[in-house]
Each structure stands twice: as structure tokens, then as C-alpha cells.
Design a protein around this nucleic acid. Structure first.
Lengths: 373, 373
DNA sequence: GCACAGTTTGCAATCGTTTGTCGTCAGCCG
DNA sequence: CGGCTGACGACAAACGATTGCAAACTGTGC
């Protein structure tokens, strides 16, 4: 208790060898240089003394901390725990530790955390909070440690990233609604500063356009229920404008003018309201459902709603939410695996891995109400 | 890119001072030993070179890594993210990093993670996975770094812990049901190997006893929906036994004999089924609701259900769940704060902080159905 | 019996800081 | 003018491992 923990020197002395020999004996890669007897003797001594290698000293010498830093906007958002879990499992398997920090989408806080992590000499960074043009991500990518983006990526080419195929997912959602008979579909888009927000919108508009359905969309300022409700109340105020010319450039929709946090592609006009809404994620969908209920619209009888992500427990809502399942665990797992690979092969070329979402049809989508129109 | 990052030596040379002087200039506590001019000159040089202190070297010298390890059973369980978040916020404020690992309630995995963390020389440990008699926790408490338990504690006295007042919470739940008119109340108890499971059961039985209501309870093997369903199906099979003599010793109920993972305090007898069920946590409550629905029992008309924890989204279930809100964020925040204090004052005496839960009445509880009995 | 090859092991430098101790120098008072 | 007192800053010794290189030792073949 009072005496300090044993050092390698103590082990060496106990085993009657030099400290260098002890080091080699304890290290699996170098143990083969030594005779089996010596290795055994050293290991016994280490065991007996309760020796534990000093990671700081080792890291200082080897320039490897065996730690990876991960930045998420907010672990409290139900989307992220599985991602973190996947990353942790992947890293643990390789003997790495996960250092976690929340950024709250706050650039200042993110920079602070990054500085601490970099000073702590993490070997790499997993970033789940990237914006499409993110100066911090740009700096970091040019920095001393390899970076892999998760879930959200940047517009700039040349990043390492593991993200869901947002575009394809949105197309799936629209096609599903189309097949049910919907011809007026709206989208509550996520913040267009994020790749997820932008690509889902792009997929939505492209699918709507190529299927020839009337559409409208609004950008939510954040991925949360409040913003979802705000957007929905505009969309459902009989305000859904017909927007047949909506094909935006694939994957890079232009940013619409924002109006008080939410923006309209077309000014409200006395058009019939949409019969279905695709939300850019489940949290937004929850907001939509709230507003619909408040306005006396039954889901799915009067309004179909599709979410995105298949967060835990959305299958237990009333009605259970139709949504796009993205393999969150895999997102984290693959991203961490990619990062670990890069540590070994630094010359590796940039690559983006797209994970295809799966449409999960539940109770919140149904054929549109029969109308005279 | 190709050249190594600048070292303190480089900064010192650029500023024209000795490396020791540079070190002091960059350190807020020691900067006062130097003239203002020198400090300024060194800081300018550091800034210009983009100097970043090498945490490994510093940690090696100071024996402080500025990192805290945290072990949770599974970050994917919605209860834990707020706890982790609270801990991270608390630590970040003090300049510490959070190293996170999942144990899956697996002792082997936990030991592995702990070893890695200790080798990485974390300064302290936050443990959210303790069992009532946990040899690992015992070893760790006697180990080289301070330990603070979160959410779950151990039976052995002398631990540092921040946990919800489980006993009081369970009493609140029973009293609430009693006031609604319920006189036959059952409990789906959590695993009795955990303090949360045991103390909630103790509170339940004590309250039931002192109010003189008929009660029964079953132990679930784990805190999840499946086990909740299993327990409920037994409890609702008209199998709820009258159990007036159930007062168990306060805070330390004896472990009942387990029967295939779930155990009955009394063998099933043809008694009327309970009109209300208190579940030891929200996940178990979800399982109860599933079974009730499957058996055609309406909640709350035929059966009232109370959960525990107020997990995210249980307010959006149908019906919204009545539950006990424990301040999860605070749990993590306070635990981390306590740990940090211990780092400064190692002689500090053990203490347990109990956070009182708050009863949140929602739609899943109502007066019992009027019966002839 | 010796040179040589091959295997083991020891030596010592190094990683980048922090910090106790000691010199130096300027200013001030007597 | 000399000695004393602080204030600054430099020296050098750690912290505990890893690793290139060289020495020592073992056995073998001639």
C-alpha cells in the first residue's frame, strides 16, 4: 500500500536478469529472442510481484498510447450508444482503449476536447460530429493522428468515413410511400450543414421527382423533437406547396434560405396538405407525430410517417414507427476497424464505406385516405 | 508532416531560455516564479511553433494521467448514457478524460478492461457494474487507484458510492398504488445480486407490509424486457400468492431460492391476481406491459404498472409509464466529482451518497377495477 | 584446440517532461 | 564601497520502459 508498485527493474532483479531481458521476456513479440527458461523465470517473477507495465513509460518510448479518442455530439441521443458500443468492442479486441467526449455540436467544446485528447496522445480519432464543411475536421485530418468519420461525413473529398447510405435510404422511404399510393409527400429535412441532413434530402427530392409525386420540404435546425414539431406544424398547416421541380444535385443539395431556423423551399400556398411525411430521423418523426396528434390527424389513417435510424423503442410507440434501420453498431465497429488498419498502414488511401439502410415497415405507414381529389 | 512535433526543448531554444524555464512558463502554477517578460516570450514561442505538451512524458513524470476509467455493463442500455454524460461533463471541467468500457456483466471481460485501464495508468475508476458481493470491486478498492461506485453499490461497508435511494423509491411506488386503492400488489424484482434489485425489493416488501397489503414477488434474472415478461406471465397466471409476512430485513433482503432464473417466494396458489405491479426498472416494466396486453389485460384499467428509472421515451409509450425518476445525470456527475476530490484528499473517509428518486405519475397507474371481492 | 556461427543476454541511450537545488546578478542599505 | 537579500533562471536527475548494438557464451567442424 505504502510502497510503490513494482517496476520492471524489480522484476528483473527478482528473476536475476537484466531489465532489458525482462522487457523482452514480457513482450510476446520479443520473447522468442530469449530461451524458454528465461522467459518463464521472468514471467513467474512478474506474476509473483504483481507487476503491471507502466503504460505511460511504454507509450513515451514507443510513441503509442493504445488509446483512441471518440467525439460524439451527445451520448444521450439514443442513436449514438450503439455506435460507441461497436467502436469500443472493435478497439477492445485490439487492446485499445476508447476515450469518449461529448461536443454538444459546439465547436469550442469540441476543440477543447480534441486538444486534451491530442495532448493525451491518443493514437487516432473517431469523429461522429462532422459537419459538411468542418474546419476542425479539416485541421484534424491534416494533423498528427489518423482520423475516421462516423455517421456524418464532410463534403471535401479524401476523408476516411463510415456512414449510412442516406441517399438510398431516403429513396427507399419515398418508394415505400409511393407504392402505398401516396402522391403528396413532404420531408422534414435535417440540418443541411450535416451530410445526413443533406443526403437524405437529396435522396428524397430525387425519388419524388423521378416518381413524379408532389413534394415539399422544410429544414429543421436540429435533429430533435422540438424542431420536428416546428417543421411539421408548418407542413401540415395546409401549407405544403407543390414542388415538381425539386431535383437537387445528387448528394449535394444547395442550402435553402433559412427562415428562423426552419426554411421553406416555396412560400406556403393553399395547397392540399401532404398525406405522408418522411422525417430525416426518428427524433424529428416523433415531433411530427406529436403535431399530427395535436391537430387531430390520426396516424397512419390520415397521415403516414417514416422515420430514419430505427432508434431503440420506436417499435413500441403508438403506432410503431416505420423507419430505416441503419446498422449503428456496425457503423462504430467498422469505423474503429478502419482506424486501426490505418495505424498500421498509414499510406492507405482515403475511402468511404456506405452501409445500406433497411426499410422496416411498421404501423405508422398505410395507404392514404381516400379523397375526392 | 514528416518532421516530428516540436518538443519543449524546441520552444526553449526559440525563446532563448532553458528547457526548465520553458516548462515553468507554460505551467500556470509555476509561471509566477518567472518574470512576466520571460513567460510571455516562452508562450509566444510555443504558440508560434504549435507546441503541444506530450501527455505521456508529463504523466510519466508527474504520475498523473489525467484520465479516469469508467466501466458500465452496457452503454446500449438507455439508463447509462445520461450517467456517462454526467461523469464526462464533470471530468471535462477538471481537465480529465473519460475512458469508457463495457463489461456485459461479464467478470472476465471486466477484469480484462480493468487491467488495460490500470496499465494505461488511469488516475481513478468509476464503476457502474458492481454486484453486492463483487470480488473484483473488492480487489480494486484495495488497489492503487481510488474507486467510486455509481448506481449500484456493494454490501460491504466502506465503499465510496453514489446511488439512487432505491428503498425509498420502492416505498413511494407502493404508497402511490395504495392511495389509488390497490390492495394486491406484486413486484418484479431485479437480480438480487445487485444492490438496486435487492434494495428495491426491500423497500417494496417493507411498504407492503406496513400498509398491510397482499403482495407477491418474483426475481428476474436480468434487468431486461424478456425477464420482465417471464416474471409477469407467472405473476399474472392467477398465480399471485398472498404473502402478508413478507417483511425482509431493511436494505439486505435474503436471497430467495432461484428457480430457473426466476424464483417465487411462495409456490403459486389459486389466488386472485394482483391489480398492480411494481417493476424494478423500466425495462422490466415493458416486459410486464407486453404480457398484460397479450393476456387481454388493459393497462391501467385492469392492471396498473409502475417502472423505475424514467428512461428516455417511456413517457411516449401507450400508456405513458408511471415511474420513479432517478437523476441519472447527477449520479454520474456527483460520482465523478467525488472521485476527483478523492484524488486530492486520499485520506478521505468512505461515504455513500443517496439520491432520492421522484415519483412521476403518468398513465399506467389508475384505481383498481371494481370487483366483488 | 581453435575459429566461427548462432543464440542469449547485457549495456546504455533515449523518449519528453517536471522539479529540487544551486548560481548569478542586480539592487539596496549601512 | 562591500555584503546581503531576493528574484530569476540554469543544471541535472529522475520518471519507467524499449531497443540497437555489442559482448558473452554455446556448440560444432576441422
Amino acid at each position: 500500500m505504502s510502497d510503490r508498485p513494482p517496476r520492471l527493474r524489480d522484476v528483473a532483479r527478482a528473476a536475476g536478469v537484466h531489465v532489458a531481458t525482462a522487457s523482452r521476456a514480457l513482450n510476446d513479440e520479443t520473447a522468442s529472442m530469449l530461451s524458454a527458461a528465461t522467459v518463464e523465470r521472468v514471467r513467474q517473477a512478474a506474476e509473483a510481484l504483481g507487476y503491471r507495465v507502466n503504460g505511460m513509460a511504454r507509450a513515451l518510448k514507443t510513441r503509442r498510447s493504445l488509446a483512441i479518442g471518440m467525439l460524439v455530439p451527445d451520448i444521450t441521443n439514443p442513436f449514438f450508444p450503439p455506435v460507441v458500443r461497436g467502436a469500443e468492442d472493435s478497439l477492445a479486441k485490439a487492446g485499445y482503449s476508447l476515450v469518449l467526449a461529448n461536443t454538444d455540436n459546439d465547436d469550442q467544446r469540441a476543440r477543447r476536447e480534441v486538444r486534451i485528447m491530442l495532448e493525451g496522445r491518443v493514437d487516432g480519432l473517431l469523429l461522429a460530429m462532422a459537419r459538411r464543411r468542418d474546419p476542425l475536421v479539416a485541421e484534424l485530418s491534416a494533423g498528427p493522428v489518423p482520423v475516421v468519420l462516423v455517421n456524418r461525413t464532410v463534403d471535401h473529398v479524401g476523408a476516411f468515413a463510415v456512414v449510412p447510405d442516406d441517399h438510398a435510404g431516403a429513396v427507399l422511404a419515398v418508394e415505400h410511400l409511393y407504392e402505398l399510393g401516396h402522391r403528396r409527400i413532404a420531408h422534414v429535412a435535417g440540418p443541411q450543414t450535416t451530410s445526413t441532413g443533406a443526403r437524405r434530402l437529396a435522396g428524397f427530392t430525387q425519388a419524388a421527382h423521378s416518381l413524379g409525386v408532389a413534394m415539399a420540404w422544410i429544414e429543421a435546425a436540429q435533429f430533435n423533437e422540438l424542431e420536428g414539431a416546428r417543421a411539421a406544424s408548418t407542413l401540415l398547416r395546409g401549407a405544403a406547396g407543390d414542388h415538381p421541380s425539386g431535383g437537387l444535385p445528387l448528394g449535394r443539395p444547395e442550402r435553402p434560405a433559412a427562415v428562423g431556423g426552419a426554411s421553406l423551399v416555396r412560400p406556403p400556398s393553399p395547397q392540399p396538405r401532404p398525406t405522408a411525411i418522411v422525417a430525416a430521423n426518428d427524433l424529428l418523426a416523433l415531433g411530427v407525430l406529436d403535431v399530427a396528434a395535436r391537430q387531430g390527424l390520426a396516424c397512419p389513417a390520415d397521415l403516414s410517417v417514416v422515420g430514419f435510424n430505427d432508434m431503440p423503442f420506436v417499435d413500441r410507440l403508438q403506432p410503431p414507427l416505420t423507419t430505416l434501420r441503419v446498422a449503428e453498431y456496425d457503423l462504430g465497429y467498422r469505423a474503429a476497424a478502419l482506424l486501426l488498419e490505418r495505424l498500421d498502414r498509414p499510406e492507405r488511401r482515403a475511402e468511404t464505406l456506405l452501409l445500406t439502410p433497411e426499410l422496416v415497415v411498421r404501423g405508422s405507414t398505410a395507404p392514404p385516405p381516400a379523397t375526392i381529389s
